[in-house]
Design a protein around this nucleic acid. Structure first.
Lengths: 153, 153
DNA sequence: GTACAACTTGAAGTTGACTTCAAGTCAAGA
DNA sequence: TCTTGACTTGAAGTCAACTTCAAGTTGTAC
């Protein structure tokens, strides 16, 4: 139990991450823990804040590598302040804006194309991949794609 | 070459998919090809339309399994009409709308939370995972997540 | 008829983010 | 002290969507 350290299952429950994920994040250097004399992990409360950051960053679409880089910008020695967290998450807003814009563009493209069935017509960009291929090189350019997609949790 | 059938590399170039992806899609049952006497693939032109559909569907965020299910709804025996394509892609618009809405919600949540640094404060949902865990079960509920994300191409 | 690019196959590898497993060790309440 | 749930480890497995590889075959321009 108790006062100021937490066990793996306590952190798991409070953070929402599975114990296996916590061990994985530790191996990746995203979080750390002290050990009991018997070798079991004990976490400081500050790890919860760190995990909250990781959860939010994942949701925004950052990879674990990127999250690691962001966390590396936190001061070592002292606990991060409000300003520290703000600083390293400042770019998230524009990242989301870009992603939203990309999806909107895709949606509008669909409205004028697949949505109306012109997939089967000669002049639709979607149904006429050779034109696109000739112009853009690969089919990946048919439509803008969302930025920073991530696999299912 | 020529008149009405296409080789693998021709389809690859015109569709934007790599030859290995075409073989993979064939194994998955998404596309099909006839064979020469020597066993090489020859594609009908209609495969390009199918591939355009696959490309668009991938972009919208469908998995290959879902794309397969959608393609299974096309009539067999005759080539799909404009109405056929429209029918099976009708749900894409709302799917994108939902995904966009989820991202906007996430963005707005960030504006009021991480963005202002309250990650370090007591009453922020993000910095207070135990409350969320108690209420929602897992950390996955901190923020709405985008629907149907997909791995990098 | 020959050269050679393009094609064939099944199997294994890749990436990211984890999870699962087996086999054993630790912590703490009764 | 005993019991039992929680914990430990490294290695291997999972998932999606492909790519890469090796070793051999085919198609066609000359």
């Amino acid at each position: 139990m108790s006062s100021d350290v937490l066990t793996v299952s306590q952190v798991a429950e409070r953070s929402g991450f599975a114990p296996s994920a916590l061990r994985f994040y530790e191996r990746q250097g995203l979080i750390s823990a002290t050990r009991t004399s018997g070798g079991q992990r004990r976490y400081e409360r500050a790890v919860l804040r760190r995990l909250a950051f990781i959860a939010a960053a994942r949701r925004v679409g950052l990879t674990l590598d990127e999250i690691g880089e962001a966390l590396a910008l936190l001061p070592d020695g002292r606990n991060p302040t409000k300003a520290d967290w703000t600083r390293i998450s400042r770019s998230w807003r524009s990242r989301l804006d870009e992603e939203i814009a990309a999806l909107e563009k895709l949606r509008d493209g669909l409205d004028g194309c697949i949505g109306c069935g012109c997939l089967s017509l000669q002049r639709c960009r979607l149904s006429n991949p050779n034109d696109v291929a000739a112009a853009a090189g690969t089919g990946a350019a048919f439509f803008p794609s969302p930025l920073h997609p991530r696999p299912e949790d």
